[in-house]
Design a protein around this nucleic acid. Sequence first.
DNA 1: GAACCTACCTAACGCTTGTTAGGTTTGTCA
DNA 2: TGACAAACCTAACAAGCGTTAGGTAGGTTC
Lengths: 200, 200
Amino acid sequence: MGVGLQTEEITGRARVLDAAAELFVRQGYVGTTLRQIAAATGIKAGSIYHHFESKEALFVAVLNDGIVVMIDAFDEAQSSLAGTDDVAVHVREHVRSHLSAIFENGPYTTAHVTSFFSAPAEVRAAVVPKRDSYEQKWNQLFEVLFPAANTKELRLRRLILFGAMNATAEWFDPAGNLTVDQLATAISDQFLQGVTQYES
Amino acid sequence: MGVGLQTEEITGRARVLDAAAELFVRQGYVGTTLRQIAAATGIKAGSIYHHFESKEALFVAVLNDGIVVMIDAFDEAQSSLAGTDDVAVHVREHVRSHLSAIFENGPYTTAHVTSFFSAPAEVRAAVVPKRDSYEQKWNQLFEVLFPAANTKELRLRRLILFGAMNATAEWFDPAGNLTVDQLATAISDQFLQGVTQYES
DNA sequence: GAACCTACCTAACGCTTGTTAGGTTTGTCA
DNA sequence: TGACAAACCTAACAAGCGTTAGGTAGGTTC
């Protein structure tokens, strides 16, 4: 019927990838078995090898998709900010974009945040380049926003901010009282002005 | 020869615990095998069961020791601050104490920070009470230091700070250029005043 | 010196793991 | 109609897992 690849079908490969991402998030790399992934997809374990050459390759694919989502979100946020000079607006919008990628774009990004350091060394090595390029985008952003600070200082501030943002994957519930937008505002405010606003 | 338990011997049990903590940090709970722990201790896998009734119980023991270290460090910091009112000094000293526990008190605390969420549900449940009591200490501290803010707001600020502090376990190298003290100062400053000090 | 405990070892158990070889079904294309 | 490939299944493999039963060596206690 269809012309083929124009309207993208949910292929078997993509369904394996989806199931794998979700299980990797919940159970980590070693804690997730190919038989679990197969069962969640609706196929048998051996059939996974028709789409991926190994469990490691499957995990690399999940992690890479995760970073692609974040890089796209970053670029989109940057485009939407073309007309603004306000440092606070820039920071808040990029924090919101990072958190949205974690909480609203499926488990791919979350897998990256929670399971990266538990992965085998070869897996980490395969993902590091793309991961670095995302971090470089933030470094360059900070150098534009805070020209008075030196590079080392800004790298440290970025790592502190990343720690705060990525840790939210472990305690924040997007279905709870706080929305992702409010969380982004809180983290952004905290990052820019600190907590001394509350001193008596 | 000795009178027995007065000078604490490095018993077999403690050596198993040490090896286990280090391996859990590097490889996570599922990624670490009892045979690896046994080999690192210098005994055989089956012998571990003379000291611990299961792999889960061993992990619980490691995590519990980790929190005890942090609670002790917190109390010690609080005692040493008895004469001071300065909010910034209080924050910096407690941040330093938390980071010291991570980087200078062996792998027990680090295991807690990096491997807690990858543990089986039963393990987490067994450790949660002590973990909560540590977090409560911070909540109470914040309510004293920032009486103008409400409880919810302070909880959020604490979670942001915890995220930033605990994430350092994944990138900070205590043998590198920055000392733990300098890192503590940077995170404490960031927490209190934010980054706007660098605006042009 | 007999009884007993602690700290280990040996050797295996049942089970699960990632992976593979070979077969079957289904749909496309010439 | 026949060739072909994509997408799956079956059934097994070697290796490794947590765990256990039973044994041994050395020290302490009565």
